[in-house]
Design a protein around this nucleic acid. Structure first.
Lengths: 119, 119
DNA sequence: TAATCATATCATTACTTAATGATATGAAAA
DNA sequence: TTTTCATATCATTAAGTAATGATATGATTA
């Protein structure tokens, strides 16, 4: 039964990481790296649809990764915590070393994406 | 077209985080936090099936998050880089503050999981 | 070399989640 | 107070991904 708590903790932690684990959400977070942006600005910066952007923002907000602040009819979002940016930075550093490995992590990818070049 | 490179970079980065974004893989990574473990030990520590564990380990290995070392008929895995542990630690810290938010990030969850309590 | 043990692979199934299009809300401007 | 603009919500669809059970590989022991 303490096992259940452990599993719940893992689920919560996994969900935190899942905030970072999608290219679109990552694009949103990157767009916020230089300060607050309105939804419209994020839409433009990321090229995502308005609806999709808003959905991801809601999720990121519920997860506590971004914070919201309304100004007139605009809504501005920001990274909620310095550690969010820190996680992004460490990932960048780590990626510099393991990018090739990640690129080849095709276990769950469809064949049509075509990762056949091995160097 | 530089957009394409940007998108590819985002995909790779997202895939890195996806390594952390599943409770089972997180359990595997946690099991490795105190040093090398054989697959069997990981199976026991996590309670996952042998096949499932092996699949996740393959993915984590391809992604460069863990490294493998064979010894006789046992295969030992370790965290591949200190930054993997670092990411886990920062996540722990961050979670201490936002856990509630993450817990309530039920946007994409099924209703039957029952997150109706708000306190 | 036959049997056993540890790990890996594979195909299938079930589930989760991202994207889309349409619509709703709510604030400012006309 | 109607229209316009910015954002949010919702139902649906499409896609991605985790788990399972069965089987394969490859190394040790008998």
């Amino acid at each position: 039964m303490s096992q259940t708590y452990r599993q719940q903790a893992l689920s919560i932690k996994a969900r935190l990481f899942r905030g970072f684990a999608d290219p679109s959400r990552l694009a949103v977070l990157e767009a916020l790296r230089n300060g607050p942006r309105s939804v419209g600005e994020i839409v433009e910066a990321t090229g995502l649809s308005q609806s999709n952007t808003s959905n991801h923002l809601s999720c990121l907000h519920d997860c506590g990764l971004v914070s919201r602040m309304q100004q007139g009819r605009y809504v501005y979002y920001t990274l909620a915590d310095a550690r969010v940016a820190e996680l992004l930075s460490i990932a960048d550093t780590l990626l510099a070393d393991v990018a090739r490995g990640v690129y080849e992590c095709t276990r769950y990818m469809l064949p049509q994406e075509g990762h056949d070049a091995h160097d």
